[in-house]
Deep mutational scan, measured.
Amino acid sequence: NITNLCPFDEVFNATRFASVYAWNRKRISNCVADYSVLYNFAPFFAFKCYGVSPTKLNDLCFTNVYADSFVIRGNEVSQIAPGQTGNIADYNYKLPDDFTGCVIAWNSNKLDSKVGGNYNYLYRLFRKSNLKPFERDISTEIYQAGNKPCNGVAGFNCYFPLRSYGFRPTYGVGHQPYRVVVLSFELLHAPATVCGPKKST
C-alpha cells in the first residue's frame, strides 16, 4: 500500500531547467500520482495528452512514469508532439509516433530571460542525422557541412553544433522561453508502482 505522493513538484518547480539538447529525465516510481494538482495549476500554456485522457489519469496505474524537462522557445512547443519535424524534434528531443503521455508547457519569461540576454539555454542546430525517439545527444563535436574534414576547428563550413537562445524579456511570445515537462507513461508486464489516488488503496 503506497502512500507517499509522487515528487512532481520537484520537477515542475525546479529552480533551473535543462537546455533542450541535454534534456533532463527523472524516473518516478513507487508513489501516488495526483495529476489533478498539475491539471489545476493555472499558468499552463499547453497540457496535451496522447493515448490517454488527462482527466482519467487519476484512475490509472503505470509501471513507471518518466518526467523529461527542458526549455525551448514558445514557437517550438508545437514540435513536442508525435510525428513532428523541425530543429527541436529532429536534433534535440524526439517523441515516438506511438507516444503515451502528456506534454505540459508554460511561459517562463520572468524566470529564464535576462536584460542583455540569458545565454545559458542551448539547443542543437546541426546534426548529421535525426534523433531516434528519446535519444539524447550531448556531443559538442564540430559539425562538418562541406567535404573538408574540420579536425575539431570551427570555421568555413565547420560549425559548433550548439546555439544559444539568448532570451531577453522584451522578445515577442514566440521567442520567449517556455518550460516543458513531458510525462511518459510506461506500461510493462510488471507490477504497477505509480497509481492515481483512487487506485492506491
Rank of each mutant, 00 (worst) to 15 (best):
Y66N: 03
N4G: 02
P54F: 04
K114F: 00
S164A: 11
A46E: 05
N130G: 14
D97Y: 07
L95M: 06
A33F: 01
K114V: 00
G117M: 00
L111W: 09
Y119S: 07
V153W: 07
E135A: 09
N147L: 12
V180C: 03
G155D: 03
S200D: 14
Y178I: 14
A190Q: 11
T170M: 14
Y123H: 00
V37R: 05
A192W: 09
K148L: 04
L122A: 12
H189I: 14
Y50W: 02
P161S: 09
F160W: 07
N24D: 14
E186R: 15
V115S: 00
H175F: 14
A67I: 03
T140V: 12
L122N: 15
V173I: 03
Y35E: 14
K148M: 09
Y143V: 12
K110F: 10
L111D: 09
K56C: 01
G174F: 04
R16Q: 06
D9V: 06
G155P: 14
S53Q: 04
V153D: 15
D97A: 00
G152E: 14
D98N: 10
K198C: 11
N130C: 08
F99W: 09
K148A: 04
N58K: 06
N120Q: 03
S78H: 13
A192M: 01
T193H: 13
S78A: 05
N4T: 10
A46F: 10
N109Q: 01
A192E: 10
N151D: 01
N75V: 03
T63D: 10
A42K: 03
S129Q: 09
T100R: 08
A190D: 12
F41A: 03
V115C: 00
V194N: 07
G74E: 01
A46R: 15
V173F: 08
P54R: 13
G116R: 00
F185M: 12
T3N: 11
T85I: 11
S164V: 02
H189W: 08
A18D: 09
R27S: 12
L60F: 08
L5K: 03
D9R: 03
F44E: 06
A154K: 12
T140N: 00
S200T: 06
K56Q: 05
L60I: 08
G116S: 04
G116N: 10
V153K: 05
L60Q: 01
T140E: 06
E10D: 01
R163V: 04
P191G: 11
Y143A: 13
F160M: 04
E141Y: 08
A46Y: 10
R73D: 07
G196S: 14
S184C: 08
V32I: 06
S139D: 14
Y119I: 06
I2Y: 07
A18Q: 13
A42T: 13
Y91F: 06
G174Y: 10
S78V: 12
K110A: 11
V115P: 00
S129D: 11
T193G: 12
N151V: 05
A154D: 14
F45V: 08
E141A: 11
L122R: 15
V194K: 05
F126W: 00
A154L: 04
E10A: 07
G166Y: 12
F156N: 14
K128C: 01
N75G: 07
G152M: 11
R73P: 14
K132E: 01
A22E: 15
S184H: 04
T193W: 06
Y159F: 05
L162V: 01
N40T: 00
E141T: 08
K114C: 00
D9H: 08
P169S: 01
K128V: 02
V194I: 05
G116M: 00
F47I: 01
A18H: 07
T170C: 03
A42F: 02
P197Q: 09
N24A: 15
N130I: 07
N109H: 14
F44C: 08
L187P: 08
E76D: 07
A22M: 06
N75K: 01
L111T: 08
K198Q: 06
A22T: 10
F8L: 05
L125C: 04
G155H: 15
G152Q: 12
N109W: 00
F47V: 04
E186Q: 06
V37Y: 09
T55K: 06
L125R: 03
K110Q: 11
V37N: 01
F156L: 12
P191D: 11
H175Y: 06
R27P: 07
A105T: 03
K56L: 02
N40R: 06
K132F: 00
Y123E: 00
T55C: 11
N118A: 14
A22N: 03
F12L: 03
G174K: 08
G155C: 15
L38I: 14
A22R: 14
K148E: 03
N109M: 05
G116Y: 00
D9L: 08
S184G: 04
N147F: 15
A190I: 11
G117H: 00
K199P: 14
D59N: 02
A190K: 08
R168A: 01
T193M: 05
D98S: 12
F44T: 04
F44L: 11
F45K: 02
Y159R: 11
F160Y: 15
V153R: 11
V20P: 01
F41T: 01
